[in-house]
Nucleic acid binder design. Sequence first.
DNA 1: AATACGGGGCA
DNA 2: TGCCCAGTATT
Length: 357
Amino acid sequence: MRDDDAAGQARSDTLLEWYDRHARDLPWRVPPGAARSPDPYRIWLSEVMLQQTTVAAVRAYFERFTQLWPTVADLAQADDGRVMAEWAGLGYYARARNLLKCARVVAAEHQGRFPDRQEDLLKLPGIGPYTAAAIAAIAFDRPAVVMDGNVERVMARLHDIHTPLPAAKPELKAEAAALTPAARPGDYAQAVMDLGATICTPRSPACGICPWRAPCLARARGTAAVLPRKAPKKAKPVRLGIAYVGRTPGGDWLLERRPDSGLLGGMLGWPGSPWAETTPAETPPVAARWCDVGAEARHTFTHFHLRLALRVAVIDPAQVPADGPLLLVPKHRFRPSDLPTVMRKAFDLAHGAMESP
DNA sequence: AATACGGGGCA
DNA sequence: TGCCCAGTATT
């Protein structure tokens, strides 16, 4: 065991030396060696945004959110619709709903301070095993074992593990735990994830410049590019739907607030038919002369492809019930960027069709 | 254990 | 255009 400990120590030291020289400059990051300590609010916000999402996509959203809501107390008081609108385009909208829930729990039940232990962080909405470990390690420098897709890939290659995911997870986690150091665990966690994101990449890893090229078994055996192995995935079915893009004579838009649970939950969207495998029936939200737009919006979600046929009409505002999910958004307050991507695609096509009759 | 849940990047 | 990537909540 002592040999393993010593080898692990040497590896984490090697990685920390690399991180001291090559740490990425990120808006939410405190550089290694800096005097200040990280703001748990900013670490939490960035980690939730980074779930299933690339750094490139997150940057602008992070800047915007921290500018609008500099503290967790500010976010806790924010308007729900405003937060959903600012999240639009980032995807996985349950994250935004849980973000608000979590901010309100922290503000009301934790005096505006995030818990510093993984076990307590795990109880908060939207914080699972990965995010709890990441906050504990990065914000509070606790030796939590941070397991994300990057770490899984790095461990699979370092130890040349060929068991397919997700079956390999326990083994990969054990290897990651054995390497997590007692000194500078926060920097170590960020270092492994940086390594996975910049060098030990999913395709064509840059083994030649990797700080772990010496101990890496997959590098020695030439198997890095095929690891980690994954269980085969199933094909995505096609679903069909119709969306109705309506506008009043005054130029206000007819939208609906989608239910909190389910696909695009809590987001604005165009009213329409359910999305199913078969051709949908016409289900106009209000009576009007709906015109077929020649084009359809195509969009791929996690588990199906959608083809959305489009109808446009000038509608009578008096036809819109005051209760229910439908709402008229005034012309000057409507921002296409407040919509999830599929709804923005539908708008772009419908709007083009309305401009040129 | 399996499924629902977006969107962006790259070949 | 199509394939790859990747945490949390729910069932």
